[in-house]
């Protein structure tokens, strides 16, 4: 493996932050080296200097795509940490169903609006399909919602797999029980594919969440789990304030179990369900930073 020099490392840390928002410090040298080395091999470059020179001058953006694919950490699994999905099933969906049924009685048209859910960094799609399965399993009132489920990610290769809904045995074995597997997946050629019914519920799009995402509109539920952990504290503040702007009135935000919004953003009200802290839009605080 070709060793990265300190001045090259510095350039790539700045470059990676610029294109992906991911913040590495020089203690992650080994990680950057290992992951960028694959890009060196792919394009047969002899040095990181050469890679840097080529990527900043590459109008086709093909090298940039490869760097993003290599550098993003696509660690995800079906029903990763079951508590958010239980929260969705036991608390959020019944609450929304209740709110919507009372709105129907008041004859407003809010009840007809689709339920909009966003998985901000969906990687290879497991979180999105886990949400879709939870919605299918949910009680009658929630099952009647029309749903718009959007998964976004910065990595093209991750999105490509997410769209295909195809997973190998190893990916399937992490997190799925046999009943769920046989009900929502079909085996084909040594792989498993998510059934068309679930795939039709989901839409996958490329998005760098450090840049603008207002064009996606407002969401009732946003999943942003284990994403901000890769960002600097300043970038986290910006991100969560912008997510607040994208959340509907009373909308829900679910973050990773090791994360907290204390000191990051006051635009959400922390709530608790069983052992999980989740957040609801704080309507009182309107200003975005």
């Amino acid at each position: 493996m070709i060793k990265i020099k300190d001045h090259e490392l510095k350039k790539f840390i700045a470059y990676i932050h610029d294109v992906s928002g991911i913040s590495f410090d020089s203690s992650k040298k080994y990680l950057i080296e290992m992951r960028l080395n694959k890009v060196l091999e792919e394009f047969s470059y002899k040095s990181y200097e050469e890679l840097y020179h080529n990527v900043v001058n590459d109008r086709s953006k093909n090298i940039e795509k490869s760097i993003i694919n290599a550098i993003t950490i696509n660690e995800t699994l079906f029903f990763r940490d079951t508590s958010p999905f239980r929260l969705l099933e036991e608390k959020i969906l019944p609450e929304i169903a209740k709110e919507r049924s009372s709105n129907t009685l008041l004859n407003t048209n809010r009840a007809q609006k689709p339920l909009r859910i966003w998985s901000t960094a969906c990687s290879t799609g497991q979180e999105v399909y886990s949400i879709a399965i939870t919605l299918k399993k949910a009680h009658q009132a929630a099952r009647n919602f029309s749903v718009k489920l959007i998964g976004t990610d910065i990595s093209d290769s991750a999105l490509c797999q997410a769209k295909s809904g195809k997973y190998n045995n190893f990916e399937i074995e992490r997190g799925l029980d046999h009943t769920t597997l046989s009900k929502y997946f079909t085996a084909s050629g040594g792989q498993w594919q998510v059934n068309p019914e679930l795939r039709a519920m989901a839409e996958f799009k490329k998005c760098n969440i450090m840049k603008s995402f207002v064009y996606f509109g407002k969401f009732d539920i946003i999943f942003c789990r284990n994403v901000a952990i890769y960002f600097t504290p300043e970038d986290r503040k910006k991100l969560f304030n912008r997510l607040a702007d994208s959340l509907s009135e009373n909308g829900y935000l679910i973050i990773g179990s090791t994360e907290s919004l204390t000191g990051i953003s006051d635009r959400f009200i922390p709530k608790r369900h069983n052992n999980l802290i989740y957040y609801q839009h704080n309507k009182q605080k309107k200003t975005s930073v």
Partner: peptide
């Protein structure tokens, strides 16, 4: 690839938890 991602994600999650 999964093992590499898992190891690196663990490292970030751990430092994020410490910060939290």
């Amino acid at each position: 690839k999964n093992a590499e991602d898992l190891r690196d994600a663990m490292e970030f999650t751990e430092s994020s938890a410490a910060q939290t």
